[in-house]
């Protein structure tokens, strides 16, 4: 972001609108991952962009009190729903895999890359190391 934009928003705006003059594009790595997954699934033809916008709109509409801080949470929820609707994955499989990752973190010593262990009852046994 160039100088003219920095700090351009006046104080009274902060009361009703969040500001981000020149922060990073993504606040946390998971936001970048969720964004990239969506763009790539669309590029691969898993859904049209109109379908994506529709799914995201529905999610955002459920949370009118959000100040923008939960935007990517809604993004992830919309992506999970669309992935389930397209039968790319589903809630049970996602829940199993999320638990498997939590377990993998808990069992991986510090300084080692976290990899999925062969101990989860995930329906897809062909597990790969985390990249």
């Amino acid at each position: 972001m160039s100088a003219p934009d920095a700090g351009a928003l006046p104080g009274n705006l902060l009361q009703s609108l969040p500001r981000d003059a020149d922060g990073p594009v993504f606040a946390e790595p998971w936001q970048a991952q969720a964004f990239a997954l969506t763009v790539q699934l669309h590029a691969e033809g898993a859904f049209t962009w109109a379908e994506w916008a529709d799914a995201l709109s529905r999610e955002l509409a459920s949370d009118p009190e959000d100040d923008g801080g939960r935007y990517y949470h809604h993004w992830v929820a919309a992506l999970e729903q669309l992935a389930a609707a397209r039968r790319l994955t589903g809630p049970a499989e996602l829940a199993d895999r999320t638990a498997a990752w939590a377990e993998a973190y808990a069992h991986t010593p510090h300084g080692r890359p976290v990899e999925l262990l062969e101990l989860s009852p995930a329906p897809h046994p062909r597990l790969r190391p985390a990249t």
């Binding site: 992506l79 999970e80 992935a83 499989e93 895999r97 999320t98």
Partner: peptide, 16 residues
């Protein structure tokens, strides 16, 4: 939790 959910989704989609 949200980071784990994304990691789960990504790893499943990559695997498939």
């Amino acid at each position: 939790d949200i980071a784990l959910r994304v990691k789960a989704l990504e790893s499943l989609l990559v695997e498939k």
